[in-house]
């Protein structure tokens, strides 16, 4: 496959309230992003066991991204008009602690840190959703192929 044609495969775990709806909102506005994205809807980003991330990467996904809600303290910076929709008090904080563990696990598996991302997003941020996916896709293109692919 020529370098140019390479379309990185990205598994996105999207929480039902913010991440998934942000993707919908990109859709409603017809904002294009790379076709390699595959979305798995879950109730809360706090539901994602590190094993799922490792599972996806070792099965050959080029990258994994988790989209969850904003935290209380982000709102303080973003302003009160931003509507936080996290349904589970602060499930996102649990996800964040876990993301640290996931990063360490990537190292153990010899995988580059760029292959995993955690992003906080509002349901209304379709533009940002598309942009993040594009950025991640681009950065994955510059990596060597996932060593677990086709193995």
């Amino acid at each position: 496959m020529a370098e140019d044609d390479f379309e990185p495969s990205i598994i996105a775990f999207c929480c039902n309230w913010c991440g998934y709806r942000a993707a919908d909102s990109a859709g409603i506005r017809n904002i294009e992003y790379p076709t390699g994205l595959r979305i798995i809807r879950i109730m809360c980003s706090g539901m994602i066991h590190p094993n799922y991330v490792i599972d996806a990467l070792t099965k050959g996904a080029d990258g994994v991204i988790i989209f969850g809600c904003y935290r209380e303290e982000d709102l303080r910076d973003l302003g009160p008009t931003k509507y936080k929709a996290c349904h589970y008090v602060d499930g996102i904080k649990k996800t964040e602690n876990r993301a640290e563990a996931i990063k360490l696990m990537l190292e153990d598996f010899g995988l580059e840190p760029e292959r995993f991302r955690l992003e906080r997003i509002f349901a209304s941020e379709g533009q940002r959703f598309a942009q993040i996916v594009k950025e991640m896709s681009d950065s994955l293109k510059s990596l060597a192929p996932n060593p677990f692919k086709n193995s």
């Binding site: 879950i42 109730m43 706090g46 539901m47 994602i48 066991h49 599972d55 649990k94």
Partner: peptide
């Protein structure tokens, strides 16, 4: 049903119905 417990458990001791690990794995 947030699943924080399921993601914490190191032993597959708890899961959330409709979002079972087998289902997520099959989707991957």
């Amino acid at each position: 049903g947030c699943g924080v417990c399921a993601a914490t458990c190191p032993k597959k001791g708890i899961y959330v119905s409709h979002y079972r690990p087998e289902q997520i794995s099959a989707m991957i």
